[in-house]
Design a protein around this nucleic acid. Structure first.
Length: 373
DNA sequence: ATTGCTCAAGGG
């Protein structure tokens, strides 16, 4: 299969905090101001842009007004969300928001567990296909590679019966979602089964909260995949949300790769049409079974298996609730008191407004026992 | 420029 390689050195991971703009810093401060900031004119500011008599708030500088009226989608400059944005949101919405504000803010221990998980997933992927790196320079190139992967994976699923890392995308409740399905395969009974592998540091069964989040994640995958094969994800919806330029020339390495794979495409637009046809005319069924497998990182022992009952109404309801935050229709929330234990392993407890606001008070005892270790 | 924009998942 194919992965993209940036020619320019602009990896988001590597740039860390340094690429944060001034306005993003202001947004963090704004967040820390908490409730006061929602009262519109509570802080006139030193330079008195509000020149007294004038009732029109138009005299506020644009950037300042923007902080109040921009939705999180706009503030974070997002055209789409990842499936895992929503599942992380299911774990703790506020933690997800802080994570967006401070990307790459992880303890080394956590990063380590994630890295281990990532390499186990990579090893599994390599069991099924090789990886080829194709240099890209524009987002059109990146999406073209994604589409080419889909075009080769669909026949592969139908002939070999198993594929890994299948890209999915589509509009859900007004927002465009993008994700990657771990594995799709046909069972001996001929049912299409999705398998999500979850690796764990400790050889213990996942807690209910963890299962709930993972069930939601795979449910989203089914929701999107089904829509794709049913022709509900149209080229125009895709182009509209991603703001891709279907006529922008693709990079030579991408064109070369497409040719190697046996596709004669001139433009991204061609490719999108081809993907749409392949998805809808390949006799792909909707996903019949959703399965999650928890394994121990070190020993690969299976710790547990979940078969998820797909409940479309419930999934849509959750998505609507989460999307309401992204659209700016409501403020982000922290966890319920019963789930306050999640805060103990959160990287943002120090700055979390939810805790300060009385949702949860950190127990000094717990903190001390933790330190004493 | 009234600045700009994306590989997702990775685990708890």
């Amino acid at each position: 299969m194919t992965e993209t390689g940036e020619e320019e050195n602009v990896s988001a991971e590597a740039s860390g905090f340094s690429d944060m703009s001034d306005s993003e810093f202001l947004e963090i401060l704004d967040l820390e101001d908490g409730k006061e900031s929602s009262a519109l004119l509570s802080k006139p500011g030193p330079s008195s842009e509000l020149s007294g008599k004038d009732d029109k708030p138009m005299c506020l500088p644009n950037w300042k007004r923007g902080l109040d009226v921009l939705s999180p989608m706009e503030r974070f400059h997002l055209k789409y969300l990842n499936v895992t944005d929503l599942s992380t949101q299911n774990w703790c919405e506020l933690q997800m928001v802080y994570g967006k504000e401070l990307p790459g803010f992880l303890t080394p221990e956590k990063a380590d567990v994630l890295d281990t998980g990532a390499s186990i997933h990579l090893a599994r992927e390599l069991e099924l296909h090789d990886l080829v790196t194709v240099p890209i320079t524009a987002k059109e190139d990146a999406w073209a590679i994604k589409f080419l992967n889909i075009l080769t994976m669909i026949p592969s699923l139908q002939s070999e019966g198993c594929i890994r890392e299948f890209p999915v995308f589509g509009e859900v409740e007004g927002v465009f979602l993008v994700g990657v399905i771990d594995e799709l395969h046909y069972t001996t009974k001929g049912e299409l089964e999705l398998t999500e592998l979850k690796t764990r540091k400790r050889p213990l069964l996942p807690l209910d909260a963890q299962k709930k989040k993972d069930c939601f994640q795979v449910s989203l995958y089914k929701y999107i995949f089904d829509a794709m094969v049913q022709g509900k994800v149209t080229p125009s919806s895709l182009i509209h949300h991603t703001k891709l330029c279907p006529d922008k020339p693709l990079g030579p390495p991408v064109l070369r790769h497409a040719q190697q794979e046996g596709f004669s495409v001139k433009s991204l637009g061609d490719l999108i049409e081809l993907v749409f046809l392949s998805l809808t005319l390949s006799d792909l069924p909707v996903i019949d079974i959703l399965k999650i497998e928890y394994i121990h990182q070190e020993t690969a022992t299976v710790l547990g298996t979940e078969i998820v009952a797909f409940e479309e109404k419930a999934v849509r309801g959750k998505v609507q609730h989460y999307i309401a935050y992204w659209m700016g229709h409501r403020e982000p929330q922290g966890v319920d008191v019963e789930e306050a234990w999640k805060c103990r392993t959160c990287n943002f407890t120090d700055i979390c407004e939810w805790k300060k606001g009385g949702g949860v008070l950190g127990s000094t005892l717990e903190l001390q026992t933790k330190k004493a270790k």
